[in-house]
Design a protein around this nucleic acid. Structure first.
Length: 847
DNA sequence: TCAATGCACTAG
DNA sequence: TAGTGCATTGAG
């Protein structure tokens, strides 16, 4: 560059020297492509890969999206639009994450936009809401066009031009009470009354605490004394002041005033008057200020012993895991319930942190309790972040940013925690790795957090520890094959023995007429004896509500859901009939609408009925129910657990929820009311699921030195699966199951992709499914395709369903090819005009 | 004849 | 996904 040019500002430099940058962005929409936008030259330095930008997409939408790539190649066939705004000057999505998201889109056959959508807390996805404002040139008096009443209403709401008030489209809709308000807006724009603009605002609001402190000119002994004198006739204000000085030693240390105290500490104190506090603020004695605080209060530094000792068995297991990590990236810790896996995890996490890496500790939703979080907080203090689905969006953003900034080096979280912006992972722990709640069904991405975690670890060079008492057959197979290190912990912690498991034949009991409602004499007697010993009972029934079916005894009429092909369940507490698939509900019928009979009775039983019956049979016992219906409120789950822990309740009746991770010392009996409904399930994982469920529930019985008992009620005790459960030998179960899987060609030997065709019209859905099957068979071969078949529940939310199961070879390259074939087959169906309404869904590795 | 509604297309 | 533009259908 010549000297002369140095005097010219960069903006005016000749075009040849200007670098024009383009950014490929990921839009948060289910679109298969990235879109290319142009970076305004003067903002070249602002582009960050992984940062958010605002762009215009289509005619009027503005969206925030993530920059995935920056380059200098202008698009060949079109003019790129400019990026409108840069939101971040540092990435909110890290490079390893982008890589992972791409892999997920690929593997789970969805778009990267869908992945981003699932990954980002919605407060990081900016909302663009169109807003309208009065046109500066508009005046009410000199208005040449007459306005309709609706238009008048809007103009009135917008106030005067000077006020510059704005309304969002939603607000306009609310104001007019209609949804089709665009016409009104259009007309107003046409008449030059209003103009439209896009307003994009960052929704993340940090948590703010109001604090107060003494106004600075009172911070000296002399002035405080003066102040006291002037307030001598205002006792209430004096009280407040005294309290403040008591809490903040301004006399001893003037600087202590700087931090003040929380306003709430003064206003909510029962002895002080809130209005006195406000008067002091108004008169300038106290000043109020805001402080941004964390939503996760920093625990005082770790209080638990940092170096608690592991038992001999735990130490051995820990050492074996470490040894495996020397050669392998993945290890499976197969430890029976109550073997003390958590201590081993904590020990490993600590080691990983000492090495300077990040740690992700995944738990299924229901296992992530206050108990475990509290324990981890005591060990890791402020370095621990918690990511839970019951958290508010702001809280999630805070964890997200905490991981980015390095404030959180360990995160304990549920499925979606795999999306957090780690870039230096050393260790991932997937506890209860067999859990089906790691798999997301709806909407896309239909991912399994365990598999995503393994891939993430692979990308970042981290080690992964999978833990379970009943590993997934696939996982155990990998370990047996030597691909994962295998470590077993077979002894319970603290010498607690494994519970005795007994089967009770309900068919025989029915014949002998010894059943009390749904309880056999054996189970009821055992419950009574247990309560008599002041010990606690857990009863498991895998169905919520009072009864799954209601039927007319005279004509057989059964109330069904209007949107789904299921009968409605009766819920007694609300006296309603409910659909468990779509949320439809109706009041309970007392008279049959078909024949007029009053003999309408419930059939079958759910948790609510068990609770009800038990209350009648055991009036002295305190019975609590735990299922989706009783835990819907934010803290009700914790409350039920706390009550049971305090032994305020003696019997806990519940669904799946009671099977997971609860650890109560005084529970010595677990009853499974109806095992049949768990076993009879029409898919290849039925046995595995049943086995896992029985063993997990059984694990709740007997801890801390007490031997527990498990009673399983079934109408057919001869089934193979019970034999495995009773002997409590996972390996034996595995050896049996793996043969079945091999014989029938299921995972881990084959890979399964489940296709679902949904259509509002049954016939069209079936035809579309037949065509899809045909296309799949043509491409993948007859042997690889099963179906189409209507599932047991063939209609959900007004969509008729058809399922096709595809079985594929495990080879990686074959898989990629097969997915391309599947996409091609789906395209063929979608291109058919008559199937435009059909929805095709691919679920990779369904559970 | 015009308006309302449905559907395929495409966004950079 | 959502907005747009075109075509088809229906009401007067």
């Amino acid at each position: 560059m010549s000297l002369a040019l140095d005097f010219i500002s960069p903006a005016a430099a000749p075009a040849a020297d200007r670098v024009t940058l383009f950014a490929d962005v990921i839009l948060p929409l289910p679109l298969p492509r990235l879109y290319t936008y142009r970076v305004p030259f003067e903002l070249n330095d602002n582009v960050v890969i992984g940062g958010r930008v605002i762009v215009q997409f289509g005619a009027k939408k503005t969206l925030s999206c993530i920059v995935a790539a920056v380059h200098e190649t202008p698009p060949a066939n079109y003019q790129a639009k400019y990026i409108l705004e840069f939101i971040d000057d540092a990435p909110v999505v890290t490079q390893p994450q982008l890589k992972l998201f791409r892999w997920m889109a690929d593997y789970y056959m969805c778009t990267i936009g869908e992945v981003i959508n699932a990954a980002l807390p919605s407060a990081l996805k900016l909302s663009s809401e169109s807003r309208i404002q009065l046109h500066p040139a508009f005046s009410r008096e000199e208005n040449e066009y007459p306005l309709t009443p609706q238009e008048e209403l809007i103009v009135y709401a917008l106030g005067s031009t000077e006020e510059g008030k704005a309304l969002t489209f939603t607000e306009v809709g609310d104001l007019l009470g209609i949804t089709s308000f665009h016409k009104v807006i259009k007309s107003l724009m046409h008449k030059d009354v209003i103009f439209l603009f896009e307003h994009t605002a960052d929704k993340y609001a940090p948590k703010v605490v109001k604090k107060v402190r003494l106004a600075h000119h009172f911070v000296s002994e002399a002035s405080i004394e003066q102040l006291f004198n002037s307030l001598s006739s205002k006792p209430k204000q004096l009280d407040v002041l005294m309290k403040y000085l008591q809490r903040v030693p301004v006399y001893q240390n003037e600087h202590s005033n700087q931090n003040g105290i929380e306003k709430a500490a003064l206003t909510s104190s029962p002895h002080l008057s809130a209005s006195a506090v406000n008067t002091l603020i108004k008169n300038g004695v106290l000043e109020q200020f805001d402080v941004i605080v964390s939503r996760f209060p920093l625990e005082d530094e770790p209080t638990a012993q940092l170096h608690f000792t592991l038992t001999e068995a735990q130490t051995t297991a820990r050492d074996e895991i470490m040894a495996h990590f020397g050669e392998k990236d993945i290890a499976l810790l197969h430890g029976v319930t109550g073997a003390g896996k958590t201590e081993i995890y904590i020990d490993l996490i600590r080691k990983a942190l000492d090495g300077g890496g990040q740690v992700l500790y995944l738990l299924p939703e229901i296992a992530l309790t206050a108990q475990i979080v509290g324990r981890l907080l005591r060990v890791f203090g402020s370095r621990l972040g918690v990511y839970h689905s019951k958290f508010s969006d702001n809280e999630r953003v805070e964890v997200w940013n905490g991981v980015l900034s390095g404030r959180f080096q360990v995160v304990v979280g549920v499925r979606s925690a795999v999306f957090l912006p780690f870039d230096n992972l050393a260790l991932i722990i997937v506890d209860e790795e067999h859990e089906s709640s790691y798999k997301q069904y709806e909407p896309a991405p239909r991912y399994n957090a365990r598999e995503v975690a393994l891939m993430m670890a692979n990308f970042q060079g981290a080690k992964t520890l999978l833990g379970s008492a009943t590993p997934a057959v696939e996982t155990y197979y990998q370990a047996k094959q030597g691909r994962y290190g295998l470590v077993s912990l077979t002894k319970r912690f603290g010498e607690a023995g494994m519970p005795d498991i007994e089967l009770v034949d309900t068919r025989k009991a029915r014949e002998k007429k010894t059943m009390h409602n749904h309880f056999t004499a054996e189970l009821l007697g055992e419950v009574e004896r247990t309560l008599g010993r002041q010990e606690q009972v857990i009863l498991f029934q895998n169905r919520r509500g009072y009864a799954p079916v209601v039927a007319c005894q005279d004509c057989g009429w059964i109330p069904k859901c209007t949107n789904c092909a299921v009968s409605l369940s009766y819920h007694k507490h609300s006296h309603e009939l409910r659909c468990h698939y779509c949320g439809y509900h109706d009041s309970m019928v007392t008279q049959c609408p078909a024949c007029g009979s009053r003999a309408v009775k419930t059939q079958g039983f759910g948790t609510e009925k068990i609770e009800d019956d038990l209350k009648i049979m055991l009036p002295q016992a305190n019975i609590q129910r735990m299922d989706l219906d009783t835990t819907r409120a934010k803290n009700s789950y914790q409350q039920i657990i706390a009550d049971f822990e305090k032994q305020a309740t003696n019997v806990l009746v519940g669904t799946q929820m009671v099977t997971k991770g609860l650890d109560f010392a005084n529970v010595s009996l677990v009853g499974i009311i109806n095992a049949d409904s768990i076993i009879h399930y029409p898919d290849f994982r039925a046995h595995e699921r049943a086995y896992q469920m029985f063993v997990q529930v059984s694990g709740r019985a007997g801890r801390k030195g007490k031997k527990g008992k498990v009673l399983i009620q079934t109408s057919d005790p001869t089934q193979v699966i019970f034999d495995k459960v009773i002997r409590n030998d996972y390996v034996e179960f595995y050896n049996y199951e793996i043969v079945q899987r091999h014989e029938h060609g299921y995972p881990p030997f084959m890979r399964v992709i489940k296709m679902t065709v949904k259509h509002v019209e049954q016939g069209l859905g079936e035809q579309a499914a037949i065509l899809l099957t045909q296309e799949l068979v043509d491409r993948l071969g007859r042997a690889a395709v099963l179906g189409p078949e209507a599932p047991y529940i063939f209609r959900i939310r007004n969509f008729y369903l058809q399922e096709i199961t595809i079985k594929l070879d495990r080879a990686h390259t074959a898989l990629k090819w097969a997915k391309e074939q599947i996409c091609a087959a789906m395209d063929v169906v979608k291109d058919q005009k008559e199937f435009k309404q059909a929805r095709l869904v691919a679920d990779v590795d369904p559970m």
